[in-house]
Amino acid sequence: MFQSISAKSNENLLKALDSNEDHIILEGFMERYSVNREDAEEILKETKKWLWLASENIKEKKGFRLFIDGSLLIIDEMWHNFILHTRAYQKFCNEKLNLFVHHEPTPASEKIIGFDSEEEKQKFQKHQEEKLSQQLSYIYDKLGAETVSKWYEEFPEKFSEKKIQALKR
């Protein structure tokens, strides 16, 4: 039977992920980025959902790993900020996720800088699209349409790479 993820389910999830350390993380983020508290809270909330989803993905032994692309830059920035507070991050992972979620930047040697042919480029783009489609489907099934839209439509517009650069203090 297909289970739709309701706003209520997300609300319950967020309550479960709530922590006493949030104010430290938020204050740190607002020190580094010129955002108001409301935006900082929203970004932290979505980042915790991302981390929960990443932990589920690992526990469920899916054949793929979740990845951060340009759309999710602001989640990545908050994730970096969270990790700076190692004690709070470790506590969150241990107590809320029962799993330590590692952050693994793509090594410079693995970054694509060009293609030898148009065919190779198209093959790569097709592969990337399939990867993203798989990820979008997973996010939809676990967290619902609202989260997919927020992460891939609202956030890339509100927190584009250029806007994030402008927000850095």
Binding site: L132, Y140, E153
Partner: peptide, 30 residues
């Protein structure tokens, strides 16, 4: 599975397909 559940599932699957397609198309354009 009754007819109402089948229709609901079909509707949700269509909504899912439309959302994912829109995002993938938009990413190509951008």
């Amino acid at each position: 599975m009754n007819t109402t559940t089948q229709k609901n599932n079909s509707k949700v699957n269509t909504e899912k397909e439309q959302l994912l397609k829109r995002i993938l198309e938009n990413k190509k354009v951008n």
